[in-house]
Design a binder for these strands. Sequence first.
DNA 1: CACTAACAATTAGTGCACAAAGGATTAGTG
DNA 2: CACTAATCCTTTGTGCACTAATTGTTAGTG
Lengths: 157, 157
Amino acid sequence: MAENSSGLDNPLALEHQVCFSLAVASRTVIALYRPVLSPLGLTHPQYLVMLALWQFAPLSVRELADLLELDSATLSPLLKRLESAGLILRERLPEDERRLTVGLTRAGRDLRARAEAIPMHMMEKLGLSLEELQQLNTTLNRLTTMATSALGREEGA
Amino acid sequence: MAENSSGLDNPLALEHQVCFSLAVASRTVIALYRPVLSPLGLTHPQYLVMLALWQFAPLSVRELADLLELDSATLSPLLKRLESAGLILRERLPEDERRLTVGLTRAGRDLRARAEAIPMHMMEKLGLSLEELQQLNTTLNRLTTMATSALGREEGA
DNA sequence: CACTAACAATTAGTGCACAAAGGATTAGTG
DNA sequence: CACTAATCCTTTGTGCACTAATTGTTAGTG
């Protein structure tokens, strides 16, 4: 009976690592989105970009990066792919030639209608209630807040 | 007051998507590991492989893939890098030449001592209690279970 | 025993994520 | 105004994740 589930017996045990559960959960949930997004021609990160644009377009690359907590170096090629797919437009801002404005094309806007059923669909697939998902969302956001502030402290040190 | 936090007002709102919170949390927590793992010469996925090996070595590629819920095509190059780093050994099983046995080298075993402080260190960085982390772990595992069984149902259909 | 199935690992190809460096533009300061 | 610093985006390079196709090996079947 030396075993327990607290992680005190073997702190390095795989099953005790939150970072592992988190990575697996993230990959698995995203995998569940794949067959739903694939008919729209979107990957999951591209879907998140489209969500941001449907909600806030136009946005600069920097604003998108802040919203999605991604590096602009990650977004740059992703946005090019969305542009080749005809969903978005990228143009330099006249008043600040450094910035790129990302906006939606007609096709990009139209895609929203086809995406509208996705959240409900995924909820049913997952088999979790709205309350459970909201609770989970809150917990995850709290975790991210803690991790982000810990990262911030490091840079300051 | 048309807004609420249930997601019913705008199901596609970025802040309501669990998949988004999950992806961000995963990336952010892994980012917090980076400065801790980098002195050991490990990336986070490599760290997870080492955890599995410290606990269960020797393991075949298939067993590792099952444990980590990863594709063998992802593990193949990763294991080669760990081998070049001198941490693991890869050899074909004499009794079944299809399989590859992955075992630890002396350096690989020795690295465990340096990794032993990591879980506690990360817990402190995050600023969450052991109970909170256990609770989170349980929740995430439940989520993965739900998502996995949903994926299973799809293949059957 | 020959032949086909299944299985294990690898390879090739696409896309995401991040670090580091670079080019272009704007803002701030003496 | 000239010059430095900051900002924005892109590019390059490395590594992870997944799909599909491939090679090699074992197991099962007629």
